[in-house]
Computed example of a mutant assay.
Amino acid sequence: MADNEGLTPRVFIVRHGETEWAKLGRQTGKTDIELTPLGLKQVLTTASHLVGEEKLLDPAKLARIFVSPRKRAQQTLQGLLGFHLNTIQSNGIEVTTTEDVAEWDYGEYEGLRLPEIRARRKEKGLDEEGKVWNVWGDGCEGGEVKDQVKERLDRVIAAIREIQAPCMRGEKAADVLVVAHGVILRAFVMRWLGYPLEMPLNMMLAPGAVGVLSYKNNSVDEPAFHVGMALPVE
């Protein structure tokens, strides 16, 4: 049976726009940094093209929103939905601000660039000869490890599936929006598909970008992601 994209619920994942630290390649977890002017423009441009009635992300079809508590994510949500956000909330659609979708806690690596982290670990003898550190498998000193991240993301995914399971054939609006951060959203995709976080799967998600997850064959037991998605036909 072919997927019915007009009916099957979707999960939109949106990365916040550019920040000064992201622009410099500095690991940004708990640091509460705001969007740059360009970062806000990235979000507004995404919104103008993709958000609205009969567009890719139709606010009228949302059943729930999850957003990171960090300023950069909160600003992104406001810029993305604009006036739609007040309507959504007045209609009783829950907007959940939660640490469960906050960025990976980098601990002692906060603010460092990738080469600096790897050099630091080499000096401390934390990595075997020839091994290169990556956050997915190794976690962060004083911060989170993969199992902690997996636990909180799995909690969100379980809540989403509970919302969407009764709506696999469009019984009611059940799209979900998650506004968060680059690394945690890539981890979210891994867990959505049931993959371990350390499994090698190169992914990219640009600042202000939108990814789309859903299900094959209108089945909640077949989570999938859209490699490409056509825009709605007017």
Rank of each mutant, 00 (worst) to 15 (best):
T19Q: 02
V95K: 15
T36M: 01
W21K: 11
G125Q: 06
T96Q: 12
A63C: 02
G142S: 06
P166L: 09
I163K: 13
E222K: 11
Q78R: 15
E234R: 13
K131R: 13
S68T: 05
Q27K: 14
P9K: 15
V156R: 04
W192Y: 10
F12R: 07
M203W: 01
L77S: 03
A63P: 06
M204A: 12
E99C: 10
T36N: 04
V212T: 09
R64Y: 04
I33A: 06
T96K: 15
L201N: 10
T19G: 05
G170C: 11
L81V: 06
V14P: 05
V183F: 04
I163H: 05
D32Y: 04
D127L: 13
G142R: 05
A60S: 10
W104Y: 12
L112K: 10
F66P: 09
K23H: 11
P37I: 12
E53G: 06
G25Y: 01
V149D: 05
F83E: 10
V43K: 02
A102T: 13
T76W: 01
H49S: 15
E53D: 10
V43M: 00
G137Q: 10
L80A: 04
A187P: 01
L185H: 02
R191F: 09
E222D: 07
R26C: 11
G79F: 00
G25L: 06
L112I: 07
W21T: 12
E34V: 09
K23W: 02
A47K: 04
E162R: 08
E116I: 08
G82N: 15
A174R: 08
D32S: 10
L62H: 01
E20P: 05
G79T: 03
S68R: 11
V149M: 05
E110D: 09
A159Q: 15
V212R: 04
A173Y: 01
E141M: 07
I117V: 14
V183W: 01
K61T: 02
N4K: 08
P37Y: 13
M1I: 09
R26W: 00
G125D: 06
R70K: 09
W136L: 06
K61H: 01
E108G: 15
